[in-house]
Design a protein around this nucleic acid. Sequence first.
DNA 1: GCCGTTTTCGGCCCGACTGTTTTCAGTCG
Length: 599
Amino acid sequence: MTNQEIAKLLKQVAAAYILKGENRFKIIAYERAADTIEKSTVEAKDLWEDGKLGSLPGVGASIAGHLDELFRTGKVKHFEEIFKGLPQAVFPLLSVPGFGPKKAYKLVHELKLGSPGTVFDDLFKAAKGGKIASIEGFGERSQQEIIEALERFKKGQIKENRMPLPYAYAIAADVINYLKKNKATRKVESLGSLRRMVATIGDIDIAVSTEKPDELINWFLRYPKPHTIVEKGPSGATILLESGRQVDLRVQHPAKFGAMLQYFTGSKHHNIKLREFALKQGLSLSEYGIKPLTKIKNEKSKIYEYPTEEEFYKAIGLPWIPPELREDTGEIEAALRTASGKPGLPHLVELRNIKGDFHIHSDYNLEPSHDLGHSPLKEILANASGLGYEYIGISDHNPSITNHSSEQILSILKRRKAYFEQIMKSTKSVRVNLFIMLEVDIQPDGKLALPKEAFSFLDAVIVSVHSSFNMDRKKMTERILSGLSYPKAKILGHPSGRLLGKREGYEVDWTKLFKFCRENHKAIEINAYPDRLDLSDTLVHEAIREKVKLVIGTDSHEAVQMNQMQYGVSVARRGWAQRCDILNTLPYNKLKGWLLSYK
DNA sequence: GCCGTTTTCGGCCCGACTGTTTTCAGTCG
């Protein structure tokens, strides 16, 4: 059962409760639980197997109990009770934008739509036949709107995919650059999930601070890349790029920019928690500023405005919270501790702390079964030098074991080592240290795809799973631990194997893996490759709590991709990682001590 | 049903938009 399916079920429970007139806070509780599970980067089922369902914010004893029953038996008696007496045709309609439980129920009830399978067609026919306008609470306009909503829904049912963060980031960077060229622009910032650096992004939202909103909006609409204009209003505009990606602009006066930036950065749950917190101080927060509550009803109180987020947070007694942390996973409580002088918010790792990259593929042809890199070592070194790195590791894929004998593999690796050493001698001007490494497959039986003798030509290896992804959790965990048990296996590469939007990660017992890594001084990689961003933010947070060390690697197959380190850093930051948690922030000598110690 | 400055009981975010309304309900982000 996937997170999406669980979230859907919980939303249906909430909808059923709405229809049955249940206590509205109970409804909100179910909606909130559905929302966190839908957005969680860890499978709820994995958490359940570890007995950690309760770690999801909004999932308490009661809902966790129901989910336990769901995972064990495939159904929940309590939910079935709740659904009793409600027409099933209501639920499919809830996926149509504009349809909530009450509207859906009223239509199904009044029009006697019995079948969930044909409810869309049945309703569409009823609307076309003019049968909706006469229902109480509806009219000609809402009837027309229903027709259009159903048509849109039919067309757009292949739901637009969210894109991996780096793609969105590149699009946004170009728009932001363009917006900065206008003289009326004071500040430009991304908003929403993009600013929080979430692994996948839907729409791109950008905010501009300016005294001349109209001028900025018109400037935005003249963005030089091909686009169509979707919407234009007094406070912003929306365009659709040729790629099908939507870009929203919001403009605000500099005096109010802080509150607006805070509001639209979210996350929703962070903002809700923040407003609850402020309310206890008699302050009401909104996108326009902060309003002190008054005792007299309906009296309009003054709104205080804030040019910056720092001032906004300060006004409610908190230090500024980095956007990457704004997910209501303890950051407000931590900020509060910081405010009272105790250890609270982490000092998040930054891109400039990174001193090297171990996961780089070169163009040296060692006849691997996976893809070669495209750049020669010299170019990689030059790039590393430009990035200010002290060291790099070249981790080409291991030579294919089906096409080579052990002797051939030894000979290939011996030649490679000699070749790399020769290059290093001839490029003494570049002061980047080299580790000669490999990325080695962990085979299904847990053995590494490399003969034992071959390790003498290597400083260390990254081990990764590249095949048989569908093993059960126990076997996969044993497989990985076995692969990591080799003395020179120091790093587990792209640990979950996920490909964003394409493939779920394989199942792993993370608790067991983290414990093993901590005890054996193995590091887990945060792979910064755009389609991976693996380990996920939530698991990074958990790994750090378990005192596991991490490395951030780009998995570059071209020298230019080494610049993608920033996306790995953003995952680390979302997982609350500080400099001390990330090994490749260490200077060369210290790092070498860890990488070259074999047990 | 969830959850915790002080609260394990008693609270529970904010504003915009839409359409059918004469003051509000439903939906959305």
